[in-house]
């Protein structure tokens, strides 16, 4: 079971890293999602893998499943979920503002080219 879990985590993280390094926003978002899946499984495994063990005190139990990593994973899932939703919205906004879905907007790194009224503070509605 340990070997299988390790292979799954390695596969998820490897695919996630590959996708995060892509040049377009959609694969990057997918990669971040896969990375968070990988790390959630990893966190889950830090409490050691047990089968059929209770997490709360029971006189008859031979051992216990560590409940803390499960709580950590739950927190991590919620945060990753919120972040994924945010990054998708940001990717859509970038697609709209920059005219393409390249992570660099496919322009030279030259902020001077921006028209002034678009970078001003009291511009259009924010995010």
């Amino acid at each position: 079971m340990e070997a299988l879990l390790a292979i799954i985590i390695a596969g998820l993280v490897g695919a996630g890293v590959y996708l995060v390094l892509r040049a377009h926003t959609f694969p990057v978002v997918l990669g971040l999602t896969l990375l968070s899946y990988g790390v959630n499984l990893f966190l889950f495994a830090t409490g050691r893998l047990t089968v059929g063990q209770p997490a709360v005190i029971d006189d008859l139990a031979a051992g216990y499943a560590d409940p803390l990593p499960q709580a950590l994973v739950l927190t991590a899932i919620v945060i990753a979920f919120g972040m994924t939703a945010f990054v998708i919205m940001l990717a859509l906004k970038a697609r709209k503002e920059l005219g393409n879905d390249h992570v660099d907007g496919r322009e030279d790194e030259d902020d001077r080219a921006e028209p002034r009224n678009e970078t001003r503070d009291a511009g259009e509605a924010g995010v």
Binding site: L35, F86, K93, V103, D111, T119, R120, D121, G123
Partner: peptide, 21 residues
């Protein structure tokens, strides 16, 4: 990203992705 504009969105995208990693 407050205020919007292409420069902010582009820099913001890098910032967000890096920090998520």
């Amino acid at each position: 990203l407050h205020g919007g504009g292409p420069a902010r969105v582009r820099a913001g995208l890098h910032f967000v992705v890096l920090n998520l990693v």
